[in-house]
Simulated scan of single mutants.
Amino acid sequence: MNAILEIEGLKKYYGRAGNQTKALDGIALQVTDGEFLGIMGSSGSGKSTLLNCIATVIRPTAGKIVMQGEEIQSMKGRKLSEYRGKKIGYLFQNFELLDNLTGRENIMLPMSLHNIPDRESKKRLSRLAGYLEITDVLDKFPSQMSGGQKQRVAAARALIMDPCMILADEPTGALDSRNAKMLMEKLSGLNRDQHATILMVTHDSNAASYCRRILFIQDGRIFHELRRDMPGETQQEFYERILKVMAQLGGGSANVL
């Protein structure tokens, strides 16, 4: 499988020598095309910092992030805009929908910003809305939607540009267990059926059990890796292995649930 994302020696330090916080301390990893990779760790371990470096929200102190052969730190202007708008789709914990736009308008916003023809936009919207079961809320405003509906609208917005990779930051964090399960089943289905590449940061072991591979981060470094033994290992068995590693991380149940 081809690696579409390669990270080498990634560091992000805050503060000055003597009073320095090492949020990332030499992370190296690859994400292959069509992979569903989870990043886990206790609060403050560096997992969201990693995602934000990939999304170019945070500039790393050192190291390289290469997406499809291009180093993203060297991107500027139009190239950076294309990367943020087309190469990655970002799914936030708190939805980040615009309150004054309907579900349809929120989803279509990236298409209009990148001048995608109207016919193509409508075709993509129809396909995603049907799959994510949000057709009935397209003309509603976020204030009229449930949490689960908001997150599925946000997922459609992240997917509408057919990005190379979906970055999901605690996507189930603001959802109840029923809506969290529904969202994870949809993301898992996209990965399985449409070969979508997903990199998800989560502290939720239930959500992580949908991944094919998990990297555990502690103190800004990769501590452990788990791979689901496909097709033999059930999701429940993988979930139980995840719990054991989270306990070893020193988090116990407080960082698992």
Rank of each mutant, 00 (worst) to 15 (best):
A3T: 07
I4A: 09
L5S: 04
E6M: 11
E8R: 08
E8F: 12
G9M: 15
G9D: 10
K11Y: 11
K12F: 03
G15A: 15
A17H: 11
A17V: 15
T21N: 15
A23Y: 03
A23L: 02
G26N: 06
G26S: 09
I27G: 04
I27Q: 00
A28I: 03
L29N: 13
T32K: 09
D33L: 10
F36H: 08
F36K: 09
L37S: 10
G41A: 12
S43W: 00
S43P: 07
G44D: 14
G44H: 00
G46K: 10
S48K: 08
S48A: 11
S48D: 03
L51A: 11
A55F: 15
T61A: 01
A62I: 15
A62Y: 03
A62T: 12
A62G: 05
I65Q: 08
M67H: 08
E71W: 05
Q73G: 07
S74N: 03
S74Y: 07
K76H: 13
K79R: 03
G85Y: 02
G89D: 00
G89V: 01
Y90V: 02
L91A: 00
Q93E: 13
Q93H: 14
L97Y: 08
L98P: 13
L98I: 09
D99M: 09
N100Y: 08
T102E: 15
R104T: 14
E105G: 11
E105D: 15
N106E: 13
M111S: 01
S112G: 13
L113Q: 12
H114P: 08
N115W: 02
I116Y: 05
P117Y: 09
S121K: 06
S121A: 14
K123G: 10
R124G: 03
R127V: 03
L128V: 12
L128P: 11
G130P: 03
L132F: 06
L132N: 13
L132W: 10
E133R: 06
T135P: 01
V137I: 07
D139N: 13
D139A: 10
K140E: 05
P142Y: 00
M145W: 04
S146L: 04
G147L: 02
G148S: 13
Q151P: 02
L159F: 11
M161S: 09
L167I: 01
E170H: 08
L175F: 12
D176P: 05
R178G: 01
N179D: 10
M184H: 11
M184E: 01
M184D: 06
K186T: 12
G189D: 13
G189E: 02
D193C: 09
D193P: 00
I198F: 12
L199A: 11
L199S: 00
M200V: 14
V201L: 15
T202I: 12
D204Y: 00
S205Q: 05
S205E: 14
A207R: 15
Y210A: 09
C211T: 06
C211A: 05
R212C: 12
I214A: 13
I214F: 05
I222G: 06
H224K: 06
D229E: 09
P231Y: 02
E237V: 07
F238V: 00
F238L: 07
F238N: 05
F238R: 10
Y239D: 13
I242H: 14
L243F: 05
V245T: 11
Q248K: 10
Q248M: 10
L249K: 04
L249V: 02
G252Q: 04
A254V: 08
V256T: 01
